[in-house]
Measured scan of single mutants.
Amino acid sequence: MATGGRRGAAAAPLLVAVAALLLGAAGHLYPGEVCPGMDIRNNLTRLHELENCSVIEGHLQILLMFKTRPEDFRDLSFPKLIMITDYLLLFRVYGLESLKDLFPNLTVIRGSRLFFNYALVIFEMVHLKELGLYNLMNITRGSVRIEKNNELCYLATIDWSRILDSVEDNYIVLNKDDNEECGDICPGTAKGKTNCPATVINGQFVERCWTHSHCQKVCPTICKSHGCTAEGLCCHSECLGNCSQPDDPTKCVACRNFYLDGRCVETCPPPYYHFQDWRCVNFSFCQDLHHKCKNSRRQGCHQYVIHNNKCIPECPSGYTMNSSNLLCTPCLGPCPKVCHLLEGEKTIDSVTSAQELRGCTVINGSLIINIRGGNNLAAELEANLGLIEEISGYLKIRRSYALVSLSFFRKLRLIRGETLEIGNYSFYALDNQNLRQLWDWSKHNLTITQGKLFFHYNPKLCLSEIHKMEEVSGTKGRQERNDIALKTNGDQASCENELLKFSYIRTSFDKI
């Protein structure tokens, strides 16, 4: 039985969820670079991206490699990797027998973001014989899940209580170790020597080791999670996991709180800001991140802002960003909400898709409305799209047979046209069989910064309504002859009103 693990408890099935942008060198404390989270699957090609990484700022997932063999891993080693800020997950990587050479110096898994409450997941690794993470000293947050690894031993010899604050939620089941077939031998045991430290858990006094050649490092209890030197002297209180010299914040392997210019500090002093819960960055760093993602459509890219001495992905609820200094300031009234469309555009074809934009005031991208039916549609669209004030790209209304009016965009005031449909149009209306009105132009103002209007096959939309939009939106004169079809717009509506004058002759039985 794995020490510190839980057996036999019912657990939810383990679901495996399925960018080499360097964020800056980590400095003297770390020998390499800070790398983003990685999802490495199918083959070993991307694994080489770990070569210079000291910190993975995010998670590391290595999974679904069915053609790899043990010899493929023999020359692979990433000794610079010290810390993973989120979680480490391995799933069905064939041929991998140990992690001792792959990650010989991995010391800390912070667990800032977890995989279903777990910071370390080893699942269905069919050839893994031992973990071998002999320098792993601290899992700051989260638990361990090690399950269905039929060859995995050296679990009962690990004292997880020396690595985690609590072992109650560890789930370590259905491994070879369960069948008591392992016969784990710690260093020196074969020669009758006791080389590794022994600890007591559940009444068992057991030597602690990761492999037959690597003991588990056990520091004096007084050192807590700070770690200790090879001689057993406690590291500085700002260290986490390990250090090369005692009581020196510049000799830590990793930091308990924050890293700044080669030393570990309790908090980031001005003019620095907390970033990702582990390091200090200056304003320029946060500003660069903001600008890199301002026009990016890459998933996970955030326009970072500053709030409460932190550089964070977005302002919290009730705050909006001051564009001059990136500071989050309290909103006066309802907060603006910028919604970034991942692929640059979004099609609204149902109430469900409209709900995804609920509360958005600025759309960074283009909207395509293609709704053919739905219950209580006008009210639903207004509830979900009615706060949109600005669209950076274009607005396209296409084959939306259920629409009679666009009044559900009740606050839309600006279409920038930074991206144009077919390279020309910022407003595009095609084949809307029941569209009769755009907006009530006596109450609604709309500016279209650039781009043209396109109207074709809107049989109940009168040309007068379209011409009014040209005047109000500032697009009059931009359109070419064929942009607004004269014969297919309003051709099934009563669009022309003329005053009919009647004269009559009164007659009676005795007068003409």
Rank of each mutant, 00 (worst) to 15 (best):
K217I: 14
H307L: 11
I185D: 03
C182S: 01
A190N: 09
P36L: 11
N175R: 06
E124N: 05
T189F: 13
D261A: 10
Y259S: 04
S244I: 07
G37V: 08
F66Q: 02
M65A: 12
A190H: 14
W210C: 01
L64A: 05
F91V: 00
C209F: 00
P104H: 01
H28N: 13
E71W: 13
F66P: 03
D72M: 13
L60K: 00
C252D: 01
C215M: 02
K294A: 11
D101K: 05
G111E: 00
S225W: 14
R141K: 03
R41P: 04
F116T: 01
L174A: 09
V108K: 06
Q245P: 04
K80R: 11
H28S: 09
P270N: 15
T229W: 10
L81Y: 00
P36I: 15
M65F: 09
N309M: 07
P70N: 09
C255W: 00
E147P: 00
N175T: 03
E57S: 11
C215N: 01
H290Y: 09
F91E: 00
C228E: 13
N138H: 14
E57L: 06
C268P: 00
R279G: 14
T250K: 09
T68P: 09
N308Q: 13
T199M: 06
P197H: 04
E231S: 11
Y118V: 15
N42F: 04
R110N: 05
W160T: 00
S317T: 12
S317F: 14
Q204A: 11
P187E: 09
M38L: 06
T140V: 08
F275S: 06
L164F: 03
A190M: 06
C335H: 04
P220Q: 11
P330S: 13
C280R: 00
C219Q: 01
K67P: 05
K129G: 06
K310L: 12
S284F: 04
P220D: 02
C53S: 01
I40T: 13
F258I: 03
L155P: 01
P246F: 13
S324V: 07
D75I: 14
D247L: 11
I222S: 12
N308D: 11
C186V: 01
P187C: 05
N105H: 05
L114S: 03
R41S: 02
V121S: 10
K176E: 03
